[in-house]
């Protein structure tokens, strides 16, 4: 699914969060959004998900304005959004059940997806009984099971340790390569953006505007990101972080 933003603006009351954002993302592209905390990245994803409406401009999916949530555009939330009263398997299955798939079939498919994210044997655990990384993997399985055409990821691995995060990035990459959704990934981790994304958009502080776009289409990447050191330094500089040792 192709996504198009036309001069999109969003404010909450007096607070201007996004201002004149335009952009176009092709089917199957992975776009990383980085920017200071509170600049409006989550809000942008909520606009695409249809949870919020733009105050100005248009958000188009395959040329049609987004009028509300639809299972073809799914969002993995920043906070824990698994249901504590459902087992991991039931959580994943719910995505299908809400679309009218029978309970039995949904549970069977959910089991397969839990296996895909290495959670075999934890089907009957409740979210509070498993680790943060396992919860996040469940959330990914819940997002992928509906075969979305647009996948919105809001700091999916933000709260995890570096090792778990890298392992999950690989899981994510595999899943994405297989299903080719258009992905918007919000992250605070510049390395994550460099590793996963075709395009990296760096946002300014609120109201969010794109400062610069970096393109990495057709790059082969590994977790060793040393060949992207220049881009990395530039992104950090745009985010206001010093990358050089100060000389007296």
């Amino acid at each position: 699914m192709q996504l198009r933003f036309e001069e999109v603006g969003k404010h909450f009351g007096q607070l201007e969060v996004i201002k004149g954002f335009s952009g176009e993302f092709a089917q199957g592209e992975l776009v990383a959004l980085v920017g200071p905390s509170g600049c409006g990245k989550s809000t942008l994803l909520h606009l695409v998900a249809g949870l919020e409406k733009p105050s100005a401009g248009k958000v188009l999916a395959d040329g049609r304005p987004i009028s509300g949530p639809h299972p073809s555009r799914t969002l993995v939330f920043q906070e824990h959004a698994l249901y504590p009263w459902l087992s991991l398997q039931a959580n994943v299955a719910m995505a299908l059940e809400l679309q009218g798939v029978s309970r039995q079939e949904a549970f069977e498919l959910a089991q397969g997806w839990l296996e895909r994210v290495n959670l075999k044997g934890f089907e009957d655990y409740y979210p509070h009984q498993v680790s943060g990384g396992m919860r996040q993997r469940t959330a990914l399985a819940r997002a992928f099971i509906a075969k979305p055409e647009v996948l919105l990821l809001d700091e999916p691995f933000g709260a995890l340790d570096a090792l778990t995060r890298m392992a999950l990035q690989d899981v994510l990459r595999e899943l994405i390569e297989e299903h080719q959704p258009t992905v918007l990934l919000v992250t605070h981790d510049v390395d994550e953006a460099l590793y996963l994304a075709d395009h990296v958009l760096v946002f300014s502080a609120r109201p969010a505007k794109v400062l610069q776009t970096f393109n990495f289409t057709h790059c082969e990447k590994s977790h060793d990101l040393s060949e992207f050191a220049a881009e990395r330094r530039e992104i950090l500089r745009l985010l206001g972080i010093k990358t050089e040792v100060a000389h007296p």
């Binding site: 909520h46 998900a49 249809g50 949870l51 949530p69 639809h70 299972p71 555009r73 799914t74 969002l75 939330f77 906070e79 824990h80 959004a81 249901y83 009263w85 459902l86 719910m94 995505a95 059940e97 809400l98 679309q99 819940r142 509906a146």
Partner: peptide, 27 residues
């Protein structure tokens, strides 16, 4: 709110929201 939004994103109708999110959440 995130529990409600999550269900909406998965395509829940109003009735499904009540039945599958609000009811178990208030249990």
């Amino acid at each position: 709110p995130v529990h409600v939004s999550a269900a909406r994103v998965m395509g829940a109708s109003r009735w499904q929201l009540l039945r599958r999110v609000y009811l178990p959440a208030v249990m």
